[in-house]
Design a binder for these strands. Structure first.
Lengths: 138, 138
DNA sequence: AATAATTGTAACTAGAATGGTTACAGCGGT
DNA sequence: ACCGCTGTAACCATTCTAGTTACAATTATT
């Protein structure tokens, strides 16, 4: 990956819409605001539903938040849309040469640093709630 | 992207090798330790060279660090291997609907949060030097 | 009961990134 | 001149992305 998928920003956009205008939020309406295909939104809604963030009404349409906007963080959304593999931002090359002192030790040494960096990013995401985000422009 | 390319971890591995055993560090030798194809290492070395981190000797072979290991951070290496597009970790969906209050404002509001999260990660990478990393297993 | 709007998925597509591979030209000591 | 190395170009299979078409299932309304 060169960049984290737009699924994440679309999901934030989607939840913001549901929070701001709880009625009228059908997949097509959201797709119109996000400017993408409705199916893309439905896929994202499915992930948000699976994560317990929203309830989607089949047939009649529309969605509601299952948690208050003040209790949904950007990290919750990030995790919901499954944007990284196995919750690891950094991928490491596999099976380095164990006969080499560097090859033997690099994996563990680097892994903990990468994990720390990933955590720093995630904890920053966790500090912002949907409510705060909406508050900046509503 | 599901994950940040192994180019980064391979580059860290490569520089660690050069720091630890300044002689013998030909592309083939490094590739043997990393366990990949020599061309992959040569490509990475080209990027590290372009970033001013190493000097590679064509013809004769081998590479040397252009900065002390204590002055090369993981962030320097991360930046050198060009692992994200335009230095943006998060990609955002484009051209949301400007007729919608959310669509009109989400970009700027979210962008600053994402930038903050990215910075948190990068600053954590900047805190670790090659010297520290090598120190943990040498 | 029929209708219409909506959700939930499956299947397919074009485009791009990844990591590996072969091939070969150019460099530079010996 | 030789030999080993670097620097690239070209190509490949695989995977992810985001969009698209299609259609079955759901549910309020008529």
């Amino acid at each position: 990956m060169k960049q984290i998928s737009t699924r994440f920003s679309m999901a934030v956009h989607t939840l913001s819409l549901i929070a701001v205008s709880p009625n009228e939020c059908t997949g097509d309406f959201i797709a119109g605001s996000v400017n993408t295909n409705p199916v893309v939104i439905r896929r994202i809604m499915g992930m948000l539903k699976k994560a317990g963030l929203v309830d989607v009404r089949p047939g009649v349409g529309g969605a509601t938040l299952l948690k208050e906007p003040g209790r949904i963080t950007l990290l919750d959304i990030y995790r919901a849309v499954d944007v990284t593999e196995e919750n690891r931002l950094f991928r490491m090359h596999e099976s380095p040469n164990m006969n080499c002192p560097v090859g033997r030790n690099i994996e563990q040494a680097l892994q903990s640093e990468l994990q720390a960096a990933q955590s720093a990013m995630e904890q920053r995401l966790a500090r912002t709630t949907l409510e705060q985000l909406i508050g900046t422009f509503q």
